[in-house]
Design a protein around this nucleic acid. Structure first.
Lengths: 142, 142
DNA sequence: AAATTATAGTTACGAATGTAACTATATCAA
DNA sequence: TTGATATAGTTACATTCGTAACTATAATTT
């Protein structure tokens, strides 16, 4: 059985290893620039990309646990980078939206993100990079 | 700038998202079967796959921080799944090797791992699966 | 040889995390 | 309408984690 098992081709290992390497490389940027955690950056980016939404929406989009979302939202709120507005019809729900400052931080990190992503694209080549994105997207829907 | 930035094609997001999904799916297996953490499983698998080695070797192979390796090794040692033997020439170094019990646990999880990996292979198809493994491996060396 | 620097691995401590329990509100069913 | 169930989000608590400091040993420099 062991001869059938190979860590190099074992997806949980391979993905985690690659993911950590790539994610942490970018984390240095938002950590140094804004002292943000990974959860905070994810929440900011999701709000910046998809606009005002609820905490549950953010959790669905990022895959973050709702407690992580809750904490990250609070932390970003403290920076005055977002506002929460209670829904009038369903008072359990709060619509979360970036402030001007939040949008500006998102924009600044967008630029860094595009540059960072381009490095990987250059390294792999356009064709392979696009193939990788497609394959990962597909795997997400397994 | 924002229009150039797309979370769907942003590697740190995409990789992390996919990786979490795939890794956690397998984690359920070793957690339910042996109450192991992710670090512990990684250390066990590395020892099973590459044989006796030092803690530093394990760290290099898994990408785990040395404190995580240290803790995981202790925890696995408590189960009597591994032995540590001090190097006679360099007494800072300990060679870590699986016991019979450790090997047997590794074997049992190997089987589950092969099955788990095969599900992804079936889902993507042989060609795409192999392409994905290749691309991730390449990206690891960026 | 003594002093300095480097490496292997552990430990302490504050920060981050996950689970479960909780509050508040809404929906559904009897 | 009331009782049961479901959902949004927060909080408490124990566990895990990362950073930095530490011990022990080895290698290098002076």
């Amino acid at each position: 059985m062991t001869e059938k098992f190979n860590l190099h081709g074992f997806l949980p290992f391979l993905l985690h290893h690659t993911s950590e390497k790539v994610s942490l490389g970018f984390r240095d940027i938002y950590r140094d620039r804004y002292k943000m955690t990974r959860s905070e950056w994810r929440v900011l980016a999701t709000l910046g990309q998809y606009g005002p939404q609820t905490a549950t929406d953010i959790g669905t989009r990022t895959g973050l646990h709702k407690t992580k979302v809750s904490r990250a939202v609070h932390s970003i709120e403290t920076r005055r980078w977002l506002n929460r507005r209670q829904d009038e019809n369903d008072r359990r729900i709060h619509l979360i939206e970036l402030t001007k400052q939040g949008q500006s931080a998102f924009l600044s990190l967008c630029q860094a993100g595009v540059t960072y992503n381009q490095k990987a694209r250059d390294f792999l080549g356009d064709k392979d990079f696009d193939a990788l994105v497609t394959l990962l997207g597909k795997l997400n829907h397994m």
